[in-house]
Computed example of a mutant assay.
Amino acid sequence: MTGDGVPEAEGPVDRPAGFFEQPFWTALGLLVVCAGPVILLAGVSGYVPDEDRFGLVVTGLVWTPFTVVVLVLAVVGTVRDRRVWRELETAGVRVMGEVTSARRVWCGEDRCTRVRMLVTVPGRPPFATSHLVHGEEIVEAGTRFTVDVHPTRDLFRLVPEPSTGGASR
């Protein structure tokens, strides 16, 4: 909740990156997922000395369920994210969000504007959100942005402006 009793938006403000759009995390995830079965296979198939085999098999048996859980969570999370964004695309309501405050901040080496917005959806209480507008664009309090909002959840995304072709985030 914000200081004036308006709930803060929950959920992403932009489409999450796809599985193959994150090569570092994909490689790290595959390494973690493969660790348990590879250790277990090495212990069972005789690639290690006999005195180390028992320890390697136990380690593989402990790590394999962990890797299965990591893999299941990754798949379920990806499916959920895609379902949520499909819902927003099919059931989204286009409304106007009003900037309640704007403050210039540094984004690495560039300047950005941290914007707090109040989004009002018909039939629901309004919610507040904050995000960064990249670039030198000056955003002032009272400015209005077009926003796609899910009708029953505090999930939204900024609508791209026709002049820039991309959504500010």
Rank of each mutant, 00 (worst) to 15 (best):
T90C: 05
R116N: 14
D110K: 10
E98K: 11
G97W: 03
R104V: 14
R111A: 14
C107M: 09
M117Q: 14
T90I: 05
R114Y: 07
R114Q: 14
E98Y: 09
T113F: 05
V105T: 08
R116D: 15
A91M: 12
V105L: 00
T100I: 11
S101N: 10
L88S: 05
T90S: 11
A102P: 03
T100E: 12
T90L: 09
R104T: 12
M117E: 12
R104G: 00
A91L: 13
T90A: 09
E89T: 08
E109W: 12
V95A: 04
V115H: 06
G108E: 07
R114A: 11
L88E: 04
R103N: 06
R111I: 14
M96N: 13
G92F: 00
L88M: 04
R94T: 15
W106S: 15
R104E: 05
R116I: 11
G92H: 02
M96L: 15
V99A: 01
E98V: 15
E89F: 05
C112N: 04
R104K: 06
G92E: 03
G92A: 06
V115G: 01
L118F: 11
G92V: 00
S101V: 02
R103S: 04
T90Y: 08
T90P: 08
S101G: 02
E109T: 14
R94Q: 13
C107K: 10
R111P: 10
D110W: 08
V93H: 05
R104I: 13
V115E: 06
R94K: 11
W106N: 14
E109M: 13
G97L: 01
R114H: 11
T113K: 07
G92M: 02
S101H: 10
T113E: 04
W106M: 15
A102T: 06
D110C: 09
R103E: 11
G108M: 01
S101L: 00
R94P: 03
V93P: 06
L118W: 10
E89N: 09
G108Q: 01
V99I: 08
T113C: 04
L88I: 02
L88P: 02
W106F: 13
R94L: 14
R104P: 09
R111H: 13
C107V: 10
S101Y: 05
E98H: 09
E109S: 15
G92L: 02
T90H: 09
